[in-house]
């Protein structure tokens, strides 16, 4: 009575493409995501380029600002958007339901990573283009790319750690709160030297400062910023292990 061939799972590239498409739609469809992913970094770039707060002698404001804003962009996508959306997907039992579909977890995780990466490539391209065309940035991008890749991984791990450790509402609050803190103390648009003395050493070892200062050195054509890259790598390992340990599918 039953039809002869047993139902089978799709070949993984088909499931991957469909999942990637959906992950991109989900990242870009919501207004609040677009705000932090796209609008906010551009506004920061435009706003702070005229601010007279950057260390003198280190070139033009854009040389300080662009690496900072790129850091903010990676933070927006990896920590805020990925973290919050993942926490809510668990809350709405989407992750549970997907666990009952013939979609291998590796395909799901891969599609999520690819979606985040594509969005970030777009962010970086757009911000670099704006920096170059409108603000006369003239550094070299290539040495910064591997550092940005590491930073992207670090913030994605931080977002997933929050999503794993906290309930959805708390992830929402936590990720946004941390975002604000990092905007102020991350050395992204405000140099760390402007912070209170007691705060400076702490701020300097946080992931956004590690990423933005490493990027500044790399994009400015300086030597490989070994210490900052090592610091960033350390954060990525710690947060990656935390994310993997704390993560819950339901």
């Amino acid at each position: 009575m039953t039809p002869a061939p047993l139902p089978r799972a799709a070949p993984w590239p088909r499931a991957f493409r469909a999942q990637l498409r959906v992950e991109l739609i989900l990242l870009l469809r919501q207004g609040e995501n677009l705000l932090v992913i796209l609008v906010l970094p551009i506004v920061l770039l435009a706003l702070f380029d005229g601010a007279r707060i950057f260390p003198s002698g280190s070139g033009r404001p854009i040389d300080f600002l662009l690496p900072g804003v790129l850091t903010v962009a990676l933070m927006s996508t990896g920590m805020v958007t990925l973290g919050i959306s993942t926490a809510y997907q668990r809350y709405y039992r989407v992750l549970k339901r997907l666990g009952g579909a013939p979609l291998p977890r590796a395909t799901l995780v891969g599609a999520k990573a690819a979606a985040v990466l594509l969005v970030e490539v777009g962010q970086v391209a757009l911000l670099v283009l704006i920096g170059w065309l409108l603000f006369g940035w003239s550094g070299t991008l290539a040495p910064g790319l591997p550092i940005m890749a590491l930073g992207a991984l670090c913030f994605a791990a931080l977002g997933l750690t929050l999503a794993g450790a906290l309930r959805a509402e708390l992830t929402l609050g936590g990720a946004n709160g941390l975002y604000l803190v990092f905007l102020v103390v991350g050395g992204v648009v405000l140099p760390i030297s402007h912070l209170p003395n007691w705060l400076q050493p702490l701020a300097a070892i946080l992931p956004p400062a590690a990423l933005s200062s490493a990027l500044r050195s790399a994009l400015g054509g300086g030597a490989l910023p070994g210490a900052q890259v090592a610091l960033l790598g350390g954060w990525t390992i710690v947060l990656g292990v935390l994310a993997a340990t704390l993560f819950r599918w339901e």
Binding site: Q30, Q89, Y92, R93, K96, R97, G100
Partner: peptide, 12 residues
Amino acid sequence: IMLQEGGIYPAL
């Protein structure tokens, strides 16, 4: 599988 509730992306 049909879960008792939820399981679907709200924005899709």
